[in-house]
Structures are given as structure tokens and as C-alpha cells.
Amino acid sequence: MDTSSYDSVFDALAASERRQLLITLLEHDSQETTVLLGVPWRISQSHDELVRYRHVHLPKLEDYGFIEWDRTEQQVTKGDRFDEIEPLVELLCEHQTPVLDH
């Protein structure tokens, strides 16, 4: 993995909202989809937070190739590059502490 790949992985994991989405996708079969409204992101569903998901978190993960996001159906699936981030997401799951959720 080159430096830019490492940068995108660590940037994707920098926000707790993105980590929670990636953890949720890790727990699903690669062929399953996650309906956005049903994802346990551990956030209140305030208007501002939903706007950040739609305009910051989801586009960023999609740009990096870690997810595919169907805006019409509001569904997320694992992207072509999910396998690059998967080992770190698994590590986070194994050692999950309250610190990771902030």
C-alpha cells in the first residue's frame, strides 16, 4: 500500500461516524446492503448530523472506494477498496473501547 492509500485509510477512520458505518458493513455479508436509516451509528438523528452524513462522511468513504452509496435507495454496500481497510476495522472491533466512539 502506498502513502496515499494509508492516508485515505486513516482519514476514513478518523471520524467515529465513519468507523461505525465501516464496522456495520464488516459485520454484514459482502452481498448485503445496509439501509442508512437502520444503521446503528450511535448518534442522535438530528438534522445537522444527517446532513454531515450525506455531505461529508458518506461521500468521503465513497470517494476512497471503501463503500458504494446508492443515493436514490439510501443504501450502502462494501466498495471495491473495502478489503484495504477491513483489517484495521477488524482490529478496532476486537479492541473497541469508549475512546473509539468519541
Rank of each mutant, 00 (worst) to 15 (best):
Q45M: 14
T33Q: 08
L13Y: 02
H28P: 00
A14P: 00
T72C: 07
T33V: 09
D7V: 13
I43P: 01
V76G: 00
F10N: 04
M1N: 12
G79H: 00
L21W: 01
A12R: 00
R42W: 01
G65T: 00
T3H: 10
E84D: 09
H47T: 09
E94L: 08
D29P: 05
H47P: 05
L100I: 06
I43L: 12
S4Y: 11
D7Y: 10
P59T: 08
F66A: 00
D101T: 07
L58S: 02
D101F: 08
T77L: 07
F82A: 01
L92R: 00
D11Q: 07
T97L: 03
K60H: 04
E90F: 11
H47K: 13
L50Y: 11
L25V: 03
A15N: 10
Q96V: 15
L25P: 01
L88R: 05
A12C: 03
L13D: 02
D11E: 07
D11Y: 06
H102G: 07
E49D: 10
T72R: 10
E94S: 06
D83E: 15
E49R: 14
P87M: 01
L26A: 08
D11P: 01
R52Q: 14
P59N: 08
L61A: 09
S44N: 13
K60R: 12
E62Q: 08
V76T: 00
V99E: 04
Q20G: 15
A15Q: 11
S46W: 06
H28K: 14
Q96A: 14
R81Q: 11
V56I: 13
L36E: 12
L25C: 03
Y6W: 13
Y53H: 12
E73R: 10
Q20V: 13
Y6D: 10
C93Q: 05
E90K: 15
H102C: 03
D29Q: 10
R54K: 12
